[in-house]
Design a protein around this nucleic acid. Structure first.
Length: 480
RNA sequence: CGGGGACUAGUUCAGCGGUAGAACGCACGGUUCGGGACCGUGAGAUGGAGGGUUCGACUCCCUCGUCCCCGACCA
């Protein structure tokens, strides 16, 4: 077994949140700092979470008819320059290869910050007719963005993600795809990662460089800052035009197709850690946990208790449909093990010792609320399932409650400023959609425009900043 | 990239211009085991890297690197 812990206690989440965040990641064995600035190592336990995320999302993606492929890591620099906004948005954070095989390269190669350009260069070759559409391709890969300030999982120089790039005959169809992808992500966050948030459209200044419209899921972290959980972009014809992607339509005329792209990254793991964790460590929702149940045998003064060992094996086989691990280690005390598995966020612990053996029971302990109760072995499977479901549900409910309590409708700029100084959170306000107001709000309060909720109604209001006419209420918050 | 802080054993830290010490961890042996047990023995550090000052640098100075916090930038 991988050893990750020291005896030293974890700093309290409530005491120093950012320190707690780093601490819990390092101590629980999710990740470690790499020798290269801004880069992190995904340790087996952390990578296992990503693999679980991948498995679930990949299935959803495939179900939608999107196929996996793989495009190269290197992109000729000139490709990036084809779409003006795109190159402008990404050039400050590019890693560029200038030497290859010991020789200076004639054409510099960019390490992909995202793959639009290299993929669309290929799409140009592959798309000829309306019969080639829709073209639906996804790739799981790494990307590199030379960020000035990195944080484990949330913003690293290299990160892992999935990026899908689709091409459609009509704008309507493309928009439909954008919404489908967004909904897929939202469902995933709620159903699997148990994190509630607000989904909708990004403002002009916050949208993806090169996109027509950007949709996203914004989540609220315990320190009152917002984290963007995914992206789904309506690219319009912005890339198709400069990349020369054309097709002959059903009417025999040459046409420009409509494109979308959508992505989901390892940053989601950062959200998972922050939202659910507590003073004792991580809490991983059962549906995504690498280990759902940790069985801890309690050898009471008997280092080799055959009866107990047999019982544990029986238990494990009864629970074969769950991800179960047994901690048989003799060199650690029971209390030590409890603490370690709590730190690692295993949602359910099962204790079994002489007491349980005698009564033909097992003791279940929930990680989310510490509740402890004994269950007869005959009811173990159903009780376990029920408990895991309840934990999953409880985590989402907690997240929803926090989101609700910290999303405030504000009509007065003074109040806006006060809230940003005090407890932050999401601020729902009328905004006139003038980027200048957005900028000033940011300069004065650190809050930026996060999202226009998709279900936002058209209303009559006054811009929180300038007082001019506003029609919609947007969500503002300080971003991660 | 600007301001501040840190870097000494695996980890957290102490100490000192005369080349290092604790606790925890680790290894071995024994006693333990229902919320981070204990005893004994032992291994483990070219002091983040490079340069300078000095008879002598972990200690003083400079440069660089990495991490943390606060900004600017940015998904």
């Amino acid at each position: 077994m991988e050893k990750t812990l020291e005896k030293k206690q974890l700093i309290k989440k409530s005491e120093d949140f950012s320190k707690w965040y780093v601490d819990v990641i390092l101590k629980s064995g999710l990740a470690d700092y790499a020798p290269v600035k801004g880069c992190q190592v995904f340790r087996p336990y952390g990578f296992a979470i990503w693999e679980n995320i991948q498995r679930v999302l990949d299935e959803k993606i495939k179900k939608a008819g999107v196929k996996n492929a793989y495009f190269p890591l290197f992109i000729p620099e000139k490709f990036l320059k084809k779409e003006k906004e795109h190159v402008k948005g990404f050039s400050p954070e590019l890693a560029v290869v200038t030497i290859g095989g010991g020789k200076k390269l004639k054409e510099k190669l960019v390490v992909r910050p995202t793959s639009e350009t290299v993929i669309y260069e290929m799409y140009k070759k592959w798309i000829k007719s309306w019969r080639d559409l829709p073209l639906l391709i996804n790739q799981w890969c790494n990307v590199v963005r030379w960020e000035k300030r990195s944080r484990l999982f949330l913003r690293t120089t290299e990160f892992l993600w999935q990026e899908a790039h689709t091409v459609h005959e009509t704008h309507e169809e493309a928009i439909e795809e954008v919404m489908r992808a967004l909904k897929m992500y939202v469902d995933f966050y709620r159903d699997f990662l148990a994190i509630d948030g607000i989904f909708g459209k990004k403002s002009e200044s916050e949208k993806f460089p090169g996109a027509e419209k950007t949709y996203t899921y914004e989540m609220l972290m315990p320190d009152g800052k917002a984290l963007q959980g995914c992206t789904s972009h309506d690219l319009g014809q912005n890339f198709a035009k400069p990349f020369g992607i054309r097709f002959v339509g059903r009417d025999g005329k040459e046409k420009i197709p409509w494109q979308t792209c959508w992505g989901f990254s390892t940053r989601s793991i950062g959200a998972l850690i922050m939202v659910h964790g507590d003073d004792s460590g991580l809490i991983i929702p059962p549906k995504i946990a690498p280990i759902q149940i940790i069985i801890i045998p309690i050898f009471q003064g008997k280092p080799s208790d055959r009866i107990l060992e047999k019982k544990v094996k029986t238990l494990k086989s009864i629970l074969k449909d769950f991800k179960v691990k047994v901690d048989f280690r003799q060199e650690y005390s029971v209390g030590w093990k409890f603490n370690e598995w709590e730190l690692k966020g295993v949602p359910l612990r099962i204790e079994i010792g002489q007491k349980e053996v005698k009564e033909n029971k097992a003791t279940l302990v929930r990680r989310d609320n510490g509740e402890k109760y004994s269950v007869p072995l005959v009811a173990l499977v159903s009780e376990t399932k029920k408990t895991l479901d309840s934990i999953q549900k409880n985590l989402l409910e907690k997240s929803s409650k926090y989101l609700k309590e910290n999303t405030r409708e504000v009509f007065d700029y003074k109040e806006f400023q006060d809230i940003m100084k005090r407890n932050r959170g999401f601020l729902k306000v009328f905004w006139c959609e003038d980027p200048k107001c957005e900028e000033k709000i940011k300069a004065e309060t650190k809050a930026t425009n996060r999202v226009l909720p998709l279900n936002a109604l058209k209303e009559k209001g006054k811009c929180i900043y300038c007082g001019k006419k506003a029609t919609h209420r947007w969500i503002f918050a300080q971003a991660y």
